[in-house]
Write a protein that binds this DNA or RNA. Structure first.
Lengths: 191, 191
DNA sequence: CAATATATTATACATTTGTAGATTTAATTC
DNA sequence: GAATTAAATCTACAAATGTATAATATATTG
């Protein structure tokens, strides 16, 4: 039920989960999550319904699992590797990368958001907040604004960023990312 | 299905919706939303199940409706009436009031958040963003930071604020609100 | 108050959900 | 490669979901 240590899973289980995730991702491009039944997902995945329930308690959990995978990919690819940047540059680059990541998965995330199935998009927020908190607790960030609680700041910026992303995802036609990023700079009061 | 112009509803409809909303609010204090069935809600409300479906398509929609009512109350009570304050004071007071509002409904909102039923809490965010956008478009705010798009700023702060609130709601024992509000001041770069 | 309109209830039905137990199939281990 | 282990399938079932139609009860209107 979580991606951690998925290596130790039986080959059959990996295959089943992969089939289910791919089926859900496909179906989400066709109609809203609400209108998908477990039966639909299983038919598309060519997996027996009882097998589905052996892995997930309901379709929400499968969606959660799908988003969890994207989370990991996002964290792995979006954090700048260059430690010499200023805190400000670091955060702005990270924000830009996150934004680009969502842009790459625009169709899938839009499907999640538009279908009342966005419950678990907030797992992304929790994930982002965790990473940010870790970052902001580092000495170079602490030195900049010592009076701010990193935990509070992390929740604040993670929520703000995700709100902008949700908004951008729902914009049609998509707003230019540059516009959001330019504005974002105004909101980061550290150097 | 929305609170707007609810006055024109038949008395019986008002009664039915009220009973259903009250039943749901009660049940949410007893067990998580996921574990509630439409049957449960109807039994508690003493309303026939077919009547439920005449008003709402599913239990999520009922929850949405419940939160919609709280939204209206929140907007009506949290915006400062004093127009002479500085933008900074105005925003901080509004934030403080919103925070207090959630504190008053802590049990209910916690029930929503903890039960995987928080899908519609984001209607609160959309609502907050709408109000904020309206505010930030006013001349006194525009004059302070003309290079920022009010729409972007509204989404940014609404998301940030709601993220903090979600975090605070899930804290056990509850963090002192003063701590969050003190930190919040650091994040508002206007006077 | 009577007539009308309509909301609620009652009943029935097809579908979906979630679970249990037995069987078959496939992966791992030695 | 055979023995072992465990996952996937099959079948069946009780409960919940969502919808349709007819009957009843209750607001609203004049």
């Amino acid at each position: 039920m979580n991606y951690q240590n998925e290596d130790h899973l039986d080959l059959r289980q990996k295959k089943t989960r992969r089939l289910l995730v791919e089926a859900l991702a496909q179906l989400l491009t066709e109609r809203p999550f609400q209108e998908l039944s477990v039966v639909d997902i299983c038919r598309r995945a060519m997996v027996h319904r009882t097998t589905f329930y052996a892995h997930f308690n309901d379709k929400q959990e499968l969606l959660h699992y799908l988003l969890e995978g994207l989370e990991q990919e996002c964290v792995a690819t979006c954090l700048p590797q260059d430690p010499d940047r200023s805190p400000r540059e670091y955060l702005l680059t990270a924000a830009q990368n996150v934004f680009q990541f969502f842009a790459q998965h625009r169709t899938l995330y839009r499907a999640c958001l538009n279908s009342g199935a966005d419950t678990r998009v907030q797992t992304l927020e929790a994930c982002a907040a965790g990473e940010l908190c870790r970052l902001l607790s580092e000495p170079r960030f602490r030195a900049v604004s010592p009076q701010v609680d990193p935990e509070v700041a992390a929740r604040f910026y993670a929520g703000a960023m995700l709100s902008l992303i949700r908004w951008w995802l729902s914009s049609e036609p998509p707003l230019p990312a540059s516009h959001l990023l330019a504005n974002l700079e105004q909101f980061i009061p550290i150097q």
